[in-house]
């Protein structure tokens, strides 16, 4: 229930931001009666209303007595830990995104796979290293050589 109230508050704050931004949308001389900002403004207001309804409903239910908390999946039994672990994956993926152009697809994907193995506590052995390199090569073969998609060569541009 606390989770639903938090969701309501986030939605309410976002709706205020969205309506503010929607009000800045310029109006075209060729536009219609509704205008480019008309629909976004309406959506923002409806979201605000739905958020208030969600919060009010939850508060009303809380006043009336305790509720059984909804069951969550194993990962969300410890949301703080999940956020941290997921943050690590996002960081690895973000570094990959930043590196893929200049480092090249093959080395950066091999590093992505190796980093993901290590991050999930798979010990780094010659076998996991081979899996990462072979996996990267297999994906390159599939997309670049087979499907004809031009994946970045980066540092290996002289070689491939």
């Amino acid at each position: 229930m606390t989770r639903d109230i938090a969701l309501g508050v986030i939605a309410l704050v976002f709706s205020v931001f969205y309506v503010t931004e929607a009000s800045k949308i310029s109006r075209s001389a060729l536009g219609d009666a509704v205008g480019a900002g008309g629909v976004p403004m309406t959506l923002g207001w409806i979201m605000g209303g739905a958020a208030i309804l969600l919060i009010a409903h939850q508060l009303w239910m809380r006043r009336a007595g305790p509720l059984i908390e909804a069951k969550v999946t194993e990962a969300f039994e410890t949301p703080g830990r999940t956020a941290l672990v997921a943050g690590g994956v996002v960081l690895i993926a973000a570094l990959y995104i930043a590196a893929v152009r200049w480092l090249g697809y093959l080395p950066s994907t091999a590093l992505l796979l190796a980093a993901m193995f290590l991050y999930q506590r798979v010990p780094l052995t010659w076998r996991t290293a081979v899996v990462a390199i072979a996996g990267s090569f297999a994906l390159w073969l599939l997309f670049d050589a087979f499907l004809g998609i031009n994946l970045p060569n980066g540092l290996l541009s002289g070689l491939i």
Partner: peptide, 8 residues
């Protein structure tokens, strides 16, 4: 936008 082409 789908009618007037204004960026949103």
């Amino acid at each position: 936008d789908p009618v007037s082409g204004v960026a949103r």
